[in-house]
Design a protein around this nucleic acid. Structure first.
Lengths: 204, 204
DNA sequence: GTCTATATCATGATAGAC
DNA sequence: GTCTATCATGATATAGAC
């Protein structure tokens, strides 16, 4: 849509905001900090976003949509919950290394504190899609019958903790190093065991 | 130490701070808000805590120590990792219902943003104790051999997610309702299977 | 749409009496 | 140790030229 050789103001501001919000936090970042980091005037920022909260809102919406798109893409590329969850964790791990600021802002920030109108992260679209993914797996007999919240927490909780720990600097190696181990644990936790075939057995 | 019939100023302020910080967040709470909520003068607050950050620091230290004490107590009461982890999750779940503010402040707040000198939550004492607990279980052959970070993330990650989801209002029932299911998942994830006896088998 | 200069005001913090 | 009254800063947001 745009010439793209000279990035438009919105993009400049959003990129600076991601930087500063994920590094120092929303409240430790003043609009003047954004001005300096983005290289645009304060007037432009207020023109495009209305107020400081508007910047955070736009950023959150953008990243949230990207994440939802990724979850949908993974869902479309694989048909078992097993494959979907593994690929999802793999992509999240890779993304944490490639774009730590994005992951920090999405997984780590407390949006409720500066976006009072947004629903909590866990009810946001990507997270709802995660639960739906698990629910389908349960319907198919891949995932052990249990409360859906428990199942999705158990399937993704370990990986999410690794992500936040990595962002915290606790985890020494790049996350993909741990993918096999963490996913093996996650899947063991929820996979329908032989004792609970639910629908039909593979070999009767 | 104190008569305790009339709670001292420090306790009054810390209680108000826990309320406001966990509800609205540190940055959305002004010192004047603390004054109103605690029913003490602003002079007293600065006399006792030095500055606003000092209030947060004192609160964090207090709750952190309580939590560390709890983890130590659980460690002393049980000798297997299996029993310890279950009891730990049970107590955390109960605590989330009984003292949601405490859990919100400890598990949910981003301390780095307002306590720049404190190490990240995951390196704080209680969390280090958790990893140690898992490590001992691994040494004993109870827990499957793997990276310790992966193991502790897998063992507690699901429960932690349930806690934050509950604080977010996503989880409808009191957490103890889900204890059996969540713990079964968590333990399946990391328990040393029959295929990996490590030290000795129960029945040879 | 972008910019500079400015208004407004809430907040963290202090002074000093009691 | 506690209080009230006050200060000084820096933040969000606006006005209005270009």
């Amino acid at each position: 849509m745009q010439p793209a050789v000279r990035p438009d103001t919105r993009a400049l501001v959003l990129d600076a905001a991601l930087d500063l919000f994920s590094e120092a936090g929303y409240f430790n970042t003043s609009v003047h900090d954004l001005v300096r980091a983005a290289g645009v005037s304060i007037g432009s920022i207020y023109h495009h976003f209305g107020d400081k909260e508007g910047v955070a809102r736009a950023l959150y919406a953008h990243l949230s949509e990207r994440m939802a798109w990724m979850v949908a893409d993974v869902g479309a590329r694989h048909d078992t919950c097993r494959a979907q969850s593994r690929e999802l964790i793999a992509r999240l791990f890779a993304m944490t290394e490639a774009e730590p600021r994005t992951m920090a802002f999405l997984f780590y920030a407390r949006h409720r504190e500066f976006l009072p109108d947004e629903p909590p992260v866990c009810s946001s679209r990507p997270f709802v899609m995660l639960r739906a993914l698990v629910e389908r797996g349960m319907g198919r007999g891949e995932v052990r019958r249990m409360d859906v919240l428990v199942a999705s927490s158990s399937l993704f909780g370990g990986a999410f903790r690794m992500i936040t720990s990595r962002l915290d600097g606790i985890v020494p190696e790049p996350l993909p190093t741990y993918l096999d181990e963490i996913w093996a644990c996650a899947w063991r936790a929820v996979a329908a065991g032989a004792s609970q075939p639910s629908r039909r057995r593979k070999s009767a």
